[in-house]
């Protein structure tokens, strides 16, 4: 399997010090890679480095054979890495269809925009069904799906999802996760950050466990789930019921 994205020996952080300390991880093409780890392990920082919002102090970020560390977020976007943020980022007063079309703002060719829109409508029926409605009127899970649809407008090589499960009720969560799998089946490479570890790992071909800014463990989702240390440290036992 070819490697689409590789971070090697990355050090990065903010005013107060380094959050990522000699971090090395790779994302194979055509699969789902899930990053898990405790709060503060540096998951958000990894995403900021990949999207160009944070320039690593040391180390390399190689995407599709080219170094992208230090490029501007816009350049990285045009290279084919699109990120779906944790918070809801649709424009609430615009329609669902307008929101999705906006995802193609880097494209100049209107015909190409229309062509991609049709492809996306096949994968995300909601764009057709609710296309004329205000995006703000959709529920949280529906908005998430529209965000997925929007990010595909740039025909990205890598889709980065930051905690797509956040704030979703169980029924909606299932739909959203199925849609993530469907994107993978449609040939996208997906990098997923999840706090809902079991949901994330059950979906992922490859898993990376972060701890204090470096990789504690990497392997297939099943291997990581089966690792007793990891299960103990991060997956938690069942919450103790009240005495």
């Amino acid at each position: 399997m070819s490697i689409l994205l590789e971070l090697h020996g990355v050090w990065a952080g903010y005013d107060g010090g380094d959050v990522l300390r000699d971090l090395t991880l790779s994302v194979p093409a055509g699969s789902i890679t899930c990053v898990v780890g405790p709060n503060g392990a540096g998951k958000s920082t990894v995403l900021r480095v990949i999207s160009g919002q944070l320039i690593p102090r040391r180390g390399t970020v190689v995407f599709d054979g080219e170094e992208i560390g230090g490029l501007s977020p816009r350049k990285i976007l045009s290279r084919g890495i699109v990120q779906v943020a944790q918070e809801h980022t649709l424009f609430p007063d615009m329609t669902v269809r307008e929101n999705v079309e906006l995802g193609g703002f880097l494209l100049r060719d209107r015909a190409e925009v229309a062509r991609r829109l049709r492809q996306i409508e096949d994968l995300f029926p909601i764009v057709t069904d609710r296309g004329g409605e205000r995006a703000g009127a959709l529920s949280g899970g529906q908005q998430r799906l529209v965000e997925f649809a929007r990010c595909l407008m740039l025909d990205p090589k890598l889709v980065v999802l930051d905690e797509p499960s956040m704030g979703l009720d169980p029924k909606t969560l299932r739909t959203v996760l199925q849609q993530v799998a469907a994107m993978r089946d449609a040939g996208r490479t997906i990098l997923l950050v999840e706090q809902n570890v079991r949901a994330g790992l059950s979906l992922a071909g490859q898993a990376v466990v972060l701890e204090s800014g470096h990789v504690r463990l990497a392997g297939t989702g099943a291997q990581v789930l089966a690792n007793p240390d990891i299960a103990h440290l991060y997956l938690g036992g069942a919450p103790r019921s009240l005495a």
Partner: peptide
């Protein structure tokens, strides 16, 4: 809400009903 019965199995970890995403696991 749940869109199906809630598992009581010991494997039902945090995230609860996500253990039932059979379609997804099958697609792996």
């Amino acid at each position: 809400y749940l869109g199906g019965a809630l598992d009581d199995g010991p494997d039902d970890g945090p995230g609860g009903p996500t253990g039932q995403t059979e379609g997804i696991e099958g697609a792996q």
